[in-house]
């Protein structure tokens, strides 16, 4: 193959690759799509920027091409919509400028009835403005009030708890409180337990003599039962005293 042919082949092939890649990219990015321009109006141009996206159901379908101020002081917003997205723009579509707290501002198109007639290019619908920052502040205000109220309540509650804790202290640890009484009761129980010791010894003795004195067992057992009942009563008494004394602690508001 001649050198000229090789060079020509190389240049043509690579140039075709470049052109096809660029054309494909341009086509996919919508450079060749026919665009339609609609004009929207607004009382204020605040928040509008050229190149701002126009969205429908979360998808970008166009962008703001130009901003103009007309003779009446109205701001005219020209939006560019490619042909394939034209079907979303109807005569009863509403246009809203949405300025989120975080992220870029955008114009949101809402079309309730997709079967209605297309929006004529000479009609100028007005853009409603949803200002996320101000709205948020308005929404947050009552919340803030509530939070303040809650904080005040909490403060009151905590002071009450303080007083109650003092009282509980007196009730529990004071000279007339629960703890000394519990101590006293425990001493009583100890005494009674000590008194139980000979009985237990007796039981032991009896058990060793069990084989011999089987007849006495019934009497002895009833004795033991009585003693145990007495212990149980004492324990119940302790319980009731403790639960009564604890009551103020439980009754927190």
């Amino acid at each position: 193959m001649k050198r000229e042919v090789k060079v020509g082949l190389f240049i043509v092939c690579t140039a075709i690759i470049i052109c096809v890649a660029l054309l494909y990219l341009a086509n996919e990015k919508g450079f060749f799509a026919r665009n339609y321009t609609f004009t929207l109006s607004s009382q204020s141009g605040d928040g509008f920027t050229e190149g701002m996206p126009v969205e429908f159901s979360g998808f970008t379908i166009g962008k703001v091409q130009k901003l103009e101020l007309n003779d009446k002081g109205l701001v005219l917003i020209k939006i560019k919509i490619p042909q394939k997205h034209l079907k979303w723009i109807k005569i009863d579509s509403t246009f809203t400028l949405y300025r989120p707290l975080i992220g870029a501002a955008r114009i949101i198109v809402t079309t309730d009835n997709l079967k209605s007639a297309a929006l004529p290019e000479d009609k100028i619908p007005e853009v409603q403005i949803v200002n996320d920052i101000n709205d948020s502040i308005e929404k947050v205000q009552p919340l803030l009030d509530k939070v303040t109220q809650i904080a005040e309540n909490l403060e009151r509650v905590s002071s009450k708890i303080d007083v109650m804790a003092g009282k509980a202290d007196v009730h529990v640890f004071g000279s007339e409180g629960t703890m000394p009484q519990v101590n006293k009761i425990l001493k009583d129980v100890n005494g009674k337990l000590e008194r139980l010791n000979p009985t237990v010894d007796n039981v032991n003795k009896i058990s060793t003599e069990a084989s011999e004195g089987l007849k006495d067992i019934g009497i002895l057992r009833s004795n033991v039962d009585d003693t145990l009942n007495a212990v149980e009563d004492v324990a119940k008494g302790v319980d009731s005293i403790i639960s009564r004394k604890k009551e103020p602690e439980i009754k927190l508001p």
Partner: peptide
């Protein structure tokens, strides 16, 4: 030019 392109691009392709 053709010679140069041949030496620089085609030959080393």
């Amino acid at each position: 030019l053709i010679d140069q392109i041949y030496f620089t691009s085609v030959q080393i392709l």
